[in-house]
Simulated assay, not measured.
Amino acid sequence: MNSEHLMFIHITNPRLVRGAAALAAIPFLLVACSSTDSSSTPARGADVIAVDDQWIKAADSGMSAAFGELTNDSDRAVTVVSATSPASARVELHEVVVAADGTKKMRPKEGGFVVPARGSIALEPGANHIMFMGLNAPLRTGAETTVTLTFDDGSSTTFTAQVRDFAGNQEKYEGDHAGTAPTPGA
């Protein structure tokens, strides 16, 4: 056999063809991998935060609160800096702390809610929550409303939460809110 025939035999061998194709693809794979390096372009908060088990406390007027679980699937911490909802004139991110006299008091959460990398935080009665102040209409059990979270990178995500009955905790509000008392359970 001359060298032309040997080359023809090797090229038509299915294993060699697949191997040659795989080798030829390596430069393309390397270029593709380097162009999507996640360390150069961090994911936006809206793209990595999941909201689960979300609900809102039923209320006739005044104040209410939203609860749930915020989960971060990225390799960096993400901070929720604000929230809005068509259900309320004003929405704040709140925490509950124990005052010197032993009573629980809620107050705005300085710096927002930090959701750790590959972690989660709970928004729950008697702890971190999203406070609705100045309800636009009653929040009736079984109804749903939307809440939009804004992150420290400027991105935002909207979720829907169902309104539920909850007798709840009895915290006092720390700060000035035009004389309105907090709704129990916030």
Rank of each mutant, 00 (worst) to 15 (best):
Ala22Asp: 03
Thr158Val: 04
Gly175Asp: 05
Ala24Pro: 08
Ala100Cys: 01
Gly168Ser: 07
Thr41Cys: 11
Gly179Asp: 06
Pro125Asp: 15
Leu139Tyr: 04
Lys172Cys: 01
Ala83Tyr: 02
Leu29Trp: 10
His94Asp: 15
Thr150Ile: 04
Asp153Lys: 05
Phe8Gly: 12
Ala127Ile: 00
Val115Gln: 05
Glu110Phe: 14
Leu16Cys: 11
Glu4Cys: 04
Leu139Asn: 05
Asp52Leu: 13
Val48Phe: 07
Asp47Gln: 12
Glu174Lys: 03
Phe113Cys: 06
Val147Asn: 01
Gly134Asp: 07
Arg140Met: 09
Ser82Asp: 12
Val115His: 07
Val78Asp: 04
Pro42Glu: 00
Ala20Leu: 13
Trp55Met: 12
Phe113Ser: 04
Asp153Thr: 08
Val51Glu: 08
Leu123Ser: 05
Thr180Phe: 05
Gly112Ile: 09
Val17Glu: 04
Ala167Tyr: 05
Arg15Asn: 14
Thr158Met: 03
Ala127Tyr: 07
Ala137Met: 02
Ser64Pro: 06
Val81Asp: 08
Arg140Gln: 12
Ile121Arg: 06
Glu110Asp: 14
Lys172Ala: 10
Lys57Asp: 11
Ser88Lys: 01
Thr103Phe: 03
Ala99Val: 04
Leu139Trp: 03
Gly111Asn: 12
Asn128Asp: 15
Ser38Leu: 12
Lys57Arg: 15
Ala89Asp: 15
Asn136Ser: 09
Pro184Arg: 04
Ser88Trp: 01
Phe132His: 05
His94Cys: 11
Ala50Met: 02
Thr79Glu: 05
Gly102Phe: 02
Val81Phe: 11
Thr158Trp: 01
Leu16Ala: 12
Ile56Trp: 03
Gly19Asp: 00
Ser35Glu: 05
Thr157Cys: 02
Gly119Met: 01
Asp153Gln: 06
Ser155Cys: 10
Ser82Asn: 09
Val98Trp: 00
Ser35Phe: 05
Arg164Lys: 15
Val81Lys: 10
Lys104Met: 14
Ala89Trp: 02
Gln54Tyr: 09
Val17Phe: 14
Ser156Gly: 08
Ser82Gly: 14
Ser156Ala: 14
Leu70Phe: 12
Arg44Lys: 15
Val147Met: 02
Ser40Ala: 14
Arg118Gln: 13
Ala181Gln: 11
Glu4Ser: 10
Asp60Asn: 12
Gly45Gln: 02
Val80Ala: 09
Ile49Met: 09
Arg107Thr: 15
Ala99Asp: 13
Gly142Asn: 07
Gly154Pro: 09
Pro138Ile: 01
Ala58Pro: 11
Ala58His: 07
Ile49Tyr: 06
Ala186Trp: 01
Glu110Met: 11
Ile26Asn: 11
Thr12Cys: 10
Lys109Tyr: 13
Asp176Ser: 10
Gly62Leu: 00
Val80His: 07
Arg107Asn: 10
Arg164Ile: 14
Arg15Trp: 07
Val31Met: 11
Glu110Ala: 15
Asn128Lys: 01
Glu92Tyr: 08
Arg140Trp: 00
Thr157Leu: 12
Ala77His: 09
Ser64Ile: 00
Ala137Phe: 02
Gly111Tyr: 10
Val51Ser: 08
Lys105His: 14
Phe8Ile: 11
Thr84Ser: 13
Glu144Asn: 12
Ala25Met: 14
Ala20Ile: 08
Pro184Asp: 10
Asp176Glu: 13
Asp152Glu: 13
